[in-house]
Design a protein around this nucleic acid. Structure first.
Length: 574
RNA sequence: CGGGCUGUGGCGCAGUUUGGUAGCGCGAUUGCUUCGGGAGUAAUAGGCCGCAGGUUCAAAUCCUGUCAGCCCGACCA
């Protein structure tokens, strides 16, 4: 490609809204273009890289035995009603109506569609297992789109769905996908870690998230250097602390004026936070978004609540629960906020963290303004409707597997695999007959890769102050020939024959023949991150050019023939 | 959803307090000089100041409403 003919524009200044390197650099390099918040288009260079990532995904999916199809993004609401997710998915679902008032949505994911396909095409055990995938635009009306491609409302995703006879089959499909994902992200040049994850709105039992390590990532992972434990912070189990046993003392109400927070109460009563119970009150909503109940969660004063664990314990959608305001709190506790406790609390679902029952003689709110109770004991003074792990695992806490202190890291979720089981096949009637004419639910798995997000993650891990440093496998072009003086016949001739030579051997080459000053060409070459740069300049008359890899500091003067051979070797090694 | 900030040529911003004919830098076009790390110079083009309403002789500026964008929070009982 001759750059003088390419639709191409770089920005010298950083766009005002861009915060993180991938957003800044992809925009400055002219690879992506924002239309509205969370919606991006891809310009020639960006589109080439995206297609390369897609191609890697395709090759590995095909190799793993999955078949590519393409379903519509526009989906009728009926299928979502069937699975129950028309309500469950919440406000992130882009909903729209046609001229006849029929409801549709733009697919945020495609479990329903694929299940629908399979239930009509598959009827016999002989037809299983099957694995289908597509690479397609997805739509999610994110509460807060941000960071360019990292969290957008329209994005490209590869989603795959496996259909098996039984759990054993699913285990194999899951492992095959897990292995394929490992190959995909390795080929893309990412440093990543597969971690255990919560399955969220998708549902199902097991799940792993593939996290590209990065400080700007929105995903927080806990891992252990001593054992194999690695999980998202919301998924990570916590070890219950078991305190020394003590005799139960008589419960007592004490006057604690103005002590709303755990800190204030514990300071006032001269107690460690480990001896106090923290209360968190929520209101819940039904399918019509009407308030339908209250939830009180209790954890030890020094702990933090893990919202995901609470939602899972209650078995409700994420959007069906909110922190209660002062008024709602009063309605339940009969007191102003800050003095809620589990004793005598009624008309709400009480969820108690699993480590609290073993804790004796605790301090808790008395459900009365300016009063707390001390020597509160589980079983005698209060009970929970649900007792389960609600705690957030923090850095340094004991590892749930081996007990050593856990570490924390941030990362970008570039892929996730789920064991769905029969959640969708049961709801939508996707069954097969076995060799005894018996019907069984098809056992499903689903597997996603955020293709556009992967592109952003690669930039996050591969850039410097001057721009992007694309790994060869995903670079929009392999080589850029920087022609220093485009109107110097000798230089132009050398550049042209080098361009022809490399192109004819299968290299993807950009020839910078623009009427620009050399500085501009060098800056642009660095910004767009082409892995190999061959500069044709003052030594062209001697057949000598300059060879430089984008990722390396040094450059060398060699003959054009040597440069071509070197470039081809690097391309072949990708 | 809650809180804060911002909308002024393609991009980045000043001007708004104290109403009075819209400015700067980058970019773009043309000429000359320059030419190996985002050149210099001269000239030119480009904006009903997000939108709607109001106050006023007069509104980018004041008032009301509205839309859009960005940031922060979602851990407090």
């Amino acid at each position: 490609m001759r750059m003088s003919k390419m639709h191409f524009k770089t920005l010298r200044e950083v766009p005002a809204e861009a915060e993180i390197p991938s957003h800044i650099l992809l925009t400055r390099a002219g690879m992506i273009r924002k239309l509205v918040s969370g919606v991006y288009g891809f310009m020639p260079l960006g589109w080439r890289t995206l297609r390369k990532i897609e191609q890697i995904v395709r090759e590995e999916m095909d190799a793993a035995g999955s078949q590519e199809i393409l379903m519509s993004a526009l989906q009728p609401s009926e299928l979502w009603e069937e699975s129950g997710r028309w309500y469950q998915y919440g406000p992130e679902l882009f909903r729209l109506k046609d001229r006849n008032d029929r409801q549709f949505c733009l697919g945020p994911t495609h479990e329903e569609i694929f299940t629908d396909i399979v239930r009509s095409d598959i009827s016999s055990w002989r037809q299983l297992p099957q694995n289908l995938y597509q690479i397609q635009h997805k739509y999610r009306d994110e509460a807060r789109p941000r960071f360019g491609l990292m969290r957008s409302r329209e994005f490209i995703m590869k989603d795959a769905y496996s259909f098996d006879l039984d759990e054993a089959g699913l285990d194999k499909s899951y492992q095959d996908m897990y292995d394929a994902y490992t190959k995909v992200f390795t080929r893309c040049g990412l440093t990543f870690r597969p971690v255990e994850a919560d399955s969220g709105a998708i549902g199902g039992s097991n799940s792993h998230e593939f996290t590209a390590l990065s400080e700007v990532g929105e995903s927080e992972i806990a891992y252990c250097e001593n054992c194999d434990m690695a999980a998202t912070s919301e998924r990570a189990a916590c070890v219950d602390e078991v305190p020394a046993d003590e005799e139960m003392l008589a419960m007592e109400k004490v006057h604690t004026p103005g002590t709303k927070t755990i800190e204030e109460v514990c300071d006032f009563l001269k107690l460690p936070k480990e001896k106090s119970i923290k209360a968190l009150l929520f209101v819940t909503y039904d399918e019509n978004y009407e308030q339908n109940g209250y939830v009180a969660a209790f954890i030890r004063g020094d702990r933090e609540l893990n919202m995901t664990k609470l939602i899972n314990a209650l078995d409700i959608p994420e959007h069906a629960i909110e922190f209660a305001d002062e008024k709602a709190m009063g309605a339940v506790t009969g007191a102003v906020g800050g003095f809620t406790g589990p004793v005598g609390l009624h008309d709400c679902t009480i969820v108690v963290d699993s480590e609290l029952p073993a804790h004796k003689n605790m301090c808790a709110g008395a459900c009365e303004e300016d009063h707390h109770l001390i020597n509160v004991n589980y079983g005698r003074d209060y009970e929970g409707d649900i007792v389960t792990d609600l705690k957030l695992l923090k850095e340094g806490d004991p590892c749930p597997c081996c007990g050593k202190p856990v570490k924390y890291a941030r990362g970008i979720e570039v892929g996730q695999v789920f064991k769905l089981g029969t959640k969708y096949s049961k709801a939508m009637g996707a069954t097969y007959k076995d060799d005894n004419q018996q019907d069984h639910d098809i056992v499903m798995g689903c597997y996603g890769i955020g293709v556009t997000r992967t592109m952003a993650a690669i930039v996050e891990q591969h850039h410097d102050d001057n721009g992007i440093i694309w790994p060869m496998a995903v670079a929009p072009y392999h080589v850029i020939i920087t022609l220093v003086k485009q109107d110097d016949e000798v230089q132009a001739g050398v550049a042209e024959s080098l361009y022809q030579e490399l192109t004819s051997k299968g290299a993807e080459v950009l020839l910078d023949d623009r009427k620009e000053r050399p500085g501009v060409k060098f800056k642009d070459a660095d910004l767009i991150g082409i892995p190999v740069r061959i500069t044709v300049g003052r030594d062209a008359a001697d057949g000598v050019v300059e060879f430089k890899e984008r990722a390396k500091e040094e450059n060398e003067k060699i003959t054009a023939e040597e440069a071509a051979a070197k470039a081809l070797a690097l391309i072949a090694a990708k």
